[in-house]
């Protein structure tokens, strides 16, 4: 989820930059962007991200999953250092520090809070009767 979310976004941004600006009067040109290979790869990555995201949401809260997956930014920065040999400045390290603290805070929280929704309790009751 972390890997494909971040790489999907990066691929998309690159693809869209290649195809150029979209005129406000020709908004349907947004579909022409779909022909770009980077955009296709980006969409594919986001599809895998989506499946992992849905699985995570099936057993954890949205307010737990959202901050926790921000660790993908840290992963991308580490990748850009060790793989692309980019220079990472103090400001980006500060950003990473903030995210790590945020993820650390949410990590100690229970996965699921709130009432079980009515549909779930109804299904469980029906199963018990069987």
């Amino acid at each position: 989820m972390m890997v494909f979310g971040a790489s999907g976004d990066a691929l998309l941004a690159r693809g869209v930059k290649q195809t150029g600006s979209i005129d406000v009067h020709h908004l349907l040109h947004v579909f022409a962007v779909l022909a770009n290979p980077y955009v296709v790869a980006g969409i594919f990555s986001l599809l895998i991200f989506m499946c992992s995201y849905m699985t995570a949401l099936s057993f954890a809260d949205l307010s737990y999953v959202m901050p926790a997956t921000a660790i993908s930014y840290v992963l991308m920065t580490l990748l850009s250092i060790f793989w692309l040999h980019e220079h990472v400045g103090a400001d980006r390290w500060l950003g990473i520090l903030f995210i790590v603290i945020g993820v650390g805070l949410v990590a100690g929280e229970p996965l699921r809070t709130g009432d079980p929704p009515a549909a779930v309790t109804a299904i469980e009751a029906a199963e018990e009767r069987r």
Partner: peptide, 16 residues
């Protein structure tokens, strides 16, 4: 605690 986590992540993502 979750709000704090969200705000930290918000700041971090904003900076990054």
């Amino acid at each position: 605690r979750r709000w704090l986590a969200t705000i930290f992540v918000f700041c971090g993502v904003l900076i990054l």
